[in-house]
Design a protein around this nucleic acid. Structure first.
Lengths: 256, 256
DNA sequence: TGAAAAATGTTACAAAATAACATTTTCTAT
DNA sequence: ATAGAAAATGTTATTTTGTAACATTTTTCA
C-alpha cells in the first residue's frame, strides 16, 4: 500500500514539475531507502510515465509538450545543407518511377524528404531502407550484399548481381569527394564498382553533393561529370568548376 | 565542421532508433574522446532534440511518436525475456561459422549479444545488420529484397536467390507464433517461404521463442519441431508441449 | 496457516558524469 | 597575414550515481 502512495505522489510531482531529483524524493519519503525510490522510478519508467535521468526523473508530460513546441519551431529554422539538397532532390521524383538511392546521411535525408508516392525505390543503405519503409505507398527494395562497416552501405558481388536484375529511371548518388581532375570519387573499391554500375544502368543520374566534398579526392573515381544529368549542391561552385561541369552537359541546381 | 557532422549523425541515428549509447557513439567516432561526445549530447539536449540518460541518449522523436511507430515500442516490450534468450543464443555461436540470423526484435537482441568473432553472419533484418556492423571481426551480409514495412524484414524472390547462394551452419530463427497443432508460424507469406528455405539449407536450426508466442497461430506455418535442433525459450513450457517437442528430437533450453 | 511472491533494506562494487584545467583548432578583425 | 579571442577538444582526478546481489521483512492468497 505504501508503494502505491509513493508512486502516486511521484506522478503528482511530475504533473507540475518537469523534473524531480532523487534527493527531493528522499526528503519527501524519509521512511524508505533511496534504493526503494529508485525502484519506484524504474516501475514508472517501465510504464512510460517518466524518463529516468541522472539524479532523478523527468516528466513525460513536460517532455512531450516541449517536444511539440520544438517541432513547430524547427520548421522555421534554417535547415542544414544536406536537408536543402535532399528537399531539392525529393522534388525530382515521380509517381511510377524506378528510383535508386545511394547510402549515406545525405541519402537518408532524401529518404525522409521523399513524398509518399507509388514508386519503387532501391537502395544500398539499410538506414535509408528503414526510413523509406515508413511510407505507405512506396515499394522499398534493399540491395543485398556485404555490409561495409565504415559507412554502413551494402556492396560486393551479391550487390552487383542485385543491381543487374533491376532497371533504374533515376539514380540519386552521393559522392565522398569531387574535383575537376578526378571527378566524383569514393573511398572504397567495391562501392566504387557498384556506383559505376548503377550509373551505367540509370537513365538519369542526379548527384547530391554538399559543398564540403568539393576539392576532395578519394582513391576511387566512379564517375565524371559528363555521365550525370544533374548536380544538386548547396552553395555556389567556383566559376571554373561550374564552367567545367556545364561544359560536360550536366545541369546544376543550387538548393536553398 | 567536424562537430556539425557528428551532431547530424547523432540526430540521424535517433531518427531511426529510440536510444543510442555512448559506447555506440564511441565506436562510430573513434577519432574523438567520449568527453567530446558527451558534450555533443549536452548540446543537443539543450536544443531539446534528445534526452540525456544514463549511458547515452534517448530520441525525442520516439518519445513523442512511439504510439505510431510500433517497432520502436516493441523494442521495450518483453525486454527481459528477450535478452535472456538472446544471451543464451549468443553462446551457441562459434568462430569460423556461417550463421544466419532472422529479423525482429529478438534477433536484434541476439545481434547485440553476439561475441565479436570471426564468423560470417547473414541476416534479413536491416536493424540486425546495422547492429552487427559494430563488431570488428564479423563479416556481415544483408539479404537483399523487398522490405516488409510491418516488421522491417527483407523477403521476396531476390531474397530467395540470395539465400540460394550461401551455406548456413547455424540458423537462428524467430517465429511469431507456436502451437502443437500448427507448429511455428508467421504472418506473411513470402517471409514464411524464406524461413522455410533457410531452414532447409541450415545444418542446425535454433528457434528463439519468448513465452508470449506460445499458443498463438499465425496464417503461415514454416516449420515443425522435428526440423529444428534446439528451442530456446524463457520460461517453462507446459508439460504436454515440452513432451511433444522433445519427442520430435529437439533440445529445449530454458534461458535464465 | 504457511508457503510463495512482492516489497524493502544493506552493502559492496562498477560505471558514468562532472569539474577543472590544458591544449588545439578555428574564426575574426585588423 | 597574423595576433588575439573564441570555440572545440583532450586529459585527468574526483564525485556521484546506478546497479547487482543477497538478506530481510511484509503481503498475498490458496
Amino acid at each position: 500500500m505504501a508503494q502505491k502512495e509513493r508512486l502516486d505522489a511521484i506522478r503528482d510531482i511530475l504533473q507540475s514539475s518537469p523534473f524531480v531529483s532523487l534527493s527531493d524524493l528522499e526528503k519527501r519519503f524519509p521512511t524508505v531507502t533511496s534504493m526503494t525510490l529508485r525502484r519506484d522510478i524504474d516501475k514508472l519508467e517501465a510504464r512510460g510515465e517518466l524518463i529516468k535521468v541522472r539524479g532523478g526523473a523527468r516528466s513525460m508530460k513536460f517532455l512531450t509538450s516541449s517536444a511539440e513546441d520544438n517541432f513547430g519551431k524547427r520548421l522555421y529554422e534554417a535547415t542544414g545543407e544536406k536537408s536543402k539538397i535532399a528537399d531539392a532532390a525529393a522534388e525530382m521524383t515521380a509517381e511510377g518511377a524506378s528510383i535508386f538511392i545511394d547510402s549515406g546521411t545525405t541519402a537518408l535525408r532524401l529518404a525522409s524528404a521523399m513524398p509518399d508516392i507509388r514508386a519503387t525505390v532501391t537502395t544500398t543503405g539499410p538506414h535509408v531502407a528503414i526510413e523509406l519503409a515508413k511510407k505507405q505507398r512506396t515499394i522499398v527494395n534493399l540491395v543485398g550484399g556485404m555490409i561495409n562497416r565504415e559507412n554502413l552501405s551494402v556492396s560486393g558481388m551479391q550487390a552487383m548481381k542485385f543491381i543487374d536484375g533491376i532497371n533504374i529511371d533515376t539514380a540519386f548518388v552521393v559522392p565522398s569527394g569531387f574535383s575537376v581532375e578526378c571527378g566524383f570519387s569514393c573511398g572504397n573499391y567495391s562501392e566504387c564498382e557498384l556506383k559505376k554500375y548503377v550509373i551505367s544502368k540509370a537513365r538519369r543520374v542526379i548527384m547530391l553533393m554538399n559543398s564540403g566534398k568539393l576539392g576532395k579526392n578519394l582513391p576511387y573515381t566512379f564517375c565524371k561529370p559528363d555521365e550525370i544529368s544533374t548536380l544538386i549542391t548547396d552553395s555556389a561552385l567556383p566559376d571554373e568548376v561550374e564552367k567545367f561541369i556545364k561544359m560536360s552537359g550536366a545541369q546544376i541546381i543550387y538548393a536553398k
